[in-house]
């Protein structure tokens, strides 16, 4: 029997619910990108599940015409893990934010990645708490003046990519709400990945942290301040493609191309490098003066998936012992007959 998949359009993934994000919020762009990409994946609509925690980003499932579960603060990865283990046939996407995933839900986030559960994770990073109206977040820069830190924050931020790589996530990428083609391409890559696919999406909160990423997104500076890494391509960036990155000892170094330095001297991006240390070095370029912020797929490697491991054990047990016999189980061990 062959079943033909209905042809979907973006509209099929939109709900009748009024979207309640603030006008101008970066979340709209992310929603639009996801709604554009899902119809192209060749997956029946009913197989998609979007699971979220709490926060502005976590309202996401209400606006996706798929199965959706808006859970509690920080716990989306754990809910999604339970779902994916029991239902490996589903395409489970997690929508989360910097506070949800890295603060209250930090534990679940790292354990999901170390287990390599087959989930796609969209981390909307706006470096602020939006839904609680403007406190600093675990990705806010040091010294951040926000509602709860009138004298400036004194804690160091997490770098989400470094954190994901530290947990040895098998797919680690970054994109930006306003870079639509790049975002869509990255979403597609994540969709194709087996195992946890972690995408940090730089997202603007125009109410509480407007312009947090403008240093990376404004047309006149973005090419000098970002580098879109691509597998097999040398690390070149700059408006005039005149800068590159090479190794210097165990550090990276930005070099100007020309004058004897060419692409051959540069690092050729290898997203499949088995050692996460390489991608980690790339992630550490963030905020280092003179270095660009990396975008794109930093790491994409194959590793056993958690839910596959669990379900393989079940299958093997049945192959070896036969399907469990309940009557036998109840009568196991020492028994005696009373007459």
């Amino acid at each position: 029997m062959t079943t033909t998949l209905p042809v979907y359009s973006k509209k099929d993934f939109q709900t009748d619910q009024e979207v309640r994000w603030c006008p101008g919020c970066g979340d709209y762009a992310i929603l639009s990108a996801v709604q554009s990409v899902f119809p192209e994946l060749g997956i029946p609509k009913e197989k998609f599940v979007v699971v979220s925690g709490i926060g502005c980003s976590s309202r996401f499932p209400y606006y996706m015409n798929t199965y959706g579960f808006h859970t509690i603060h920080g716990r989306a990865p754990a809910v999604a893990t339970g779902l994916k283990i029991t239902r490996p046939d589903l395409e489970v996407w997690v929508a989360t934010g910097d506070g949800d995933a890295l603060s209250i839900g930090g534990n679940h986030t790292i354990h999901m990645m170390r287990r390599n559960v087959g989930l796609k994770v969209l981390l909307f990073n706006n470096k602020i708490y939006g839904l609680t109206k403007g406190q600093y977040s675990p990705t806010s820069e040091m010294g951040k003046k926000a509602k709860s830190t009138p004298y400036g924050s004194v804690d160091r931020p997490f770098n989400p990519l470094s954190l994901a790589l530290g947990a040895e996530a098998t797919f680690v990428a970054r994109s930006v709400d306003v870079f639509q083609p790049h975002l869509k391409a990255t979403l597609k890559r994540a969709a194709a990945h087996q195992g946890t696919a972690f995408i940090e999406i730089l997202q603007n909160c125009n109410i509480f942290n407007d312009g947090a990423w403008e240093n990376l997104t404004e047309r006149d500076v973005r090419d000098d301040h970002t580098i879109a890494v691509e597998h097999g391509q040398p690390l070149v960036f700059g408006k005039n493609k005149d800068k590159g990155i090479r190794m210097k000892g165990i550090e990276l170094e930005v070099v100007a191309l020309g004058g004897g330095i060419g692409e051959k001297d540069l690092i050729v991006h290898d997203e499949r490098h088995p050692n996460p240390a390489y991608a980690f070095l790339l992630s550490r370029m963030d905020g280092t003066p003179g270095f660009p912020t990396p975008l794109g797929v930093l790491r994409a490697v194959d590793a056993p998936r958690y839910e596959a491991g669990i379900n393989d054990q079940l299958r093997q047990a049945v192959e070896k012992k036969g399907r469990g016999d309940l009557a036998q189980l109840l009568q196991a061990g020492d028994t005696w007959q009373v007459r």
Binding site: A78, G82, I85, H111, A317, V318
Partner: peptide, 25 residues
């Protein structure tokens, strides 16, 4: 396991119950 029983030793008590909610879903 031959009874189709999945045991998930979670990272904490909260993940233990929330994973169960995900499985029930």
């Amino acid at each position: 396991k031959e009874f189709g029983v999945v045991t998930f030793q979670a990272e904490d008590e909260i993940a233990a119950v929330t994973s169960a909610i995900g499985a029930a879903y």
